Computed example of a mutant assay.
Amino acid sequence: MHSSLFRTALVLGLLSAIGPFSIDMYLPALPAIAGDLGVTETQVQLTITLYFLAFGVSQFLWGPMADAYGRKLPLVLGIGLFAIGSVGCALAPTLGWLVAARFVQGIGGAAVGVVPRAIIRDRYTGIEATRLMALVMLVIAVSPMLAPLAGSVVLAFGGWRVIFGVLVGVAAMSLLITLFALPETLARKDRVPVNLRSMGAGCRVLLSDPVFMGLTFVGAFGFGSFFVFIATASFVYTEHYGLTPTGFSIAFAVNALGFFAASQIAAPMGQRFGIVPVMRLALIGFAAAAFVLLAATWAGWGTLPVLMAGLFVANAFLGLVMPATFVMALEEHGDIAGLASSLGGTLQMVTGGLLVTALGPFFDGTPLPMVTAIALCAALALGIGLAVLRRMPAPALAGE
């Protein structure tokens, strides 16, 4: 493997991990936060929902800024905001304060969500870009496997506020990486000034592109299933199945492992068999696994091993889909990659946040509402995916 590709993947992966790390690390603490602040489980889930919404909507700011001022400046500003939000979370005396600070965190974290995808598009396309995206996801995979465990350790010895103190340190490390290890990939001659006319024109192009929109919403409902799991899993695993925070962290890591392990073979399979056939098969597998799990849960067979196995298989199929959706959605829009990345990210994160909000009234601490929502996401991703894949151009069909 080319050393520059690996180095780029490592740097971008470490930066991109800020967003999921800020969620995964404090998941074991959600019941403790609810108890400490005297609020319900549904209310404390607002700290996740508002983070998702802020993360999603503010990508629409960072993407155009990255097209106008280069890739590094938005990263520096975003990481700074993330650090400020983390300090606010650590000091939060009430749920309202915590939700507001998480909102600020989400605004800052969005920069490291959208800009790395534009950087990938600056330097690579096609199979190489898919391979790089998969490598970035491999680095990000450390987050769902280690962050909850780290959070449970911190929770045991220092309380939930210390978790956000650790995130301040993560932000500081990320700032150093951005300043000293990340080159600027957008030349001055290629920068697009920020103005409403250019943004409007770019959005019209993107919103009228059925391939871009279709792939974006395949990713939206794919990630939406993950968001539902993130928002509800700590309560389901600790209260319904009786796991400790550490036990929940291990179970969460196992469920996430399928996604990230499969993402590493997405590029080789796409190169050998064609990206579109692989995506089609993976979407069918994702939906099939989700509905088998739903049927088992409805039938009363939803034991912890069954739930973990079903989620592992479903997420493994999803891991074959997500890297390609990111890359293929931007493939024809290299001249507005920042705007395309931000619009796609906004639509995906807002969709995820709305799904979590819609689930709230139905959540009862059992796995059935969670599994039902995941199956719904899988069905929507499959339906949209099968429609859009028929419109893919010949190079994608050939796996080039």
Rank of each mutant, 00 (worst) to 15 (best):
A233H: 03
M279S: 14
F227A: 05
N315I: 08
F248Q: 06
F223K: 12
G302R: 11
A251C: 10
L281C: 15
I284G: 08
L281Y: 15
L330K: 07
F291A: 00
G319Y: 01
G338C: 02
T232E: 00
R280F: 09
I265D: 11
G242I: 11
L294I: 02
F326K: 08
S234M: 04
P305Y: 09
L330Y: 01
A288E: 00
L304G: 04
V327K: 07
L283R: 02
M322A: 13
V276N: 08
F312T: 10
A314C: 00
G302Q: 04
G310R: 01
D335N: 15
T297V: 13
Q264H: 11
E331C: 06
T238I: 09
Y241R: 01
A324H: 09
P323K: 05
I250P: 07
F229I: 09
S263C: 10
A296G: 01
A256F: 15
S263A: 15
G258Q: 00
A266L: 12
F326Y: 12
G334I: 04
G222R: 10
T238R: 12
E331F: 04
A287P: 02
T325E: 05
V278N: 03
F326R: 13
F229T: 02
L283D: 00
P277H: 01
T246R: 14
V278C: 02
F273C: 11
A233L: 04
A253M: 11
Y237R: 12
A288T: 14
A289K: 03
F223I: 14
F273N: 09
F235K: 00
G334T: 08
G224C: 13
Q264M: 13
N255C: 06
W298A: 15
F317D: 03
M279D: 11
L320C: 07
Q271C: 06
M322V: 15
A309Y: 02
A296Q: 12
V327N: 12
G224S: 10
R280L: 10
S249N: 12
I250F: 04
F227M: 07
Q264D: 03
L330A: 00
W298D: 11
I230A: 15
S249E: 11
H333F: 02
A290S: 05
T232M: 05
I265G: 08
S249G: 13
R280Y: 05
V321D: 01
A295D: 11
S263V: 09
D335C: 13
A299F: 14
Q264A: 15
F227T: 13
A324G: 09
F312E: 03
L293D: 13
A316T: 04
A290I: 06
P268F: 01
S225H: 07
F326S: 14
G302C: 11
A309H: 06
F248T: 04
M322E: 12
T246A: 10
A324W: 02
G310M: 08
G242N: 01
V254Y: 06
V228M: 08
E331Q: 09
A295M: 13
P268Y: 05
G310D: 03
M308Q: 08
A251H: 07
F229G: 01
F286E: 14
M269I: 06
G319N: 03
W298K: 14
A267S: 10
V306E: 01
A289G: 02
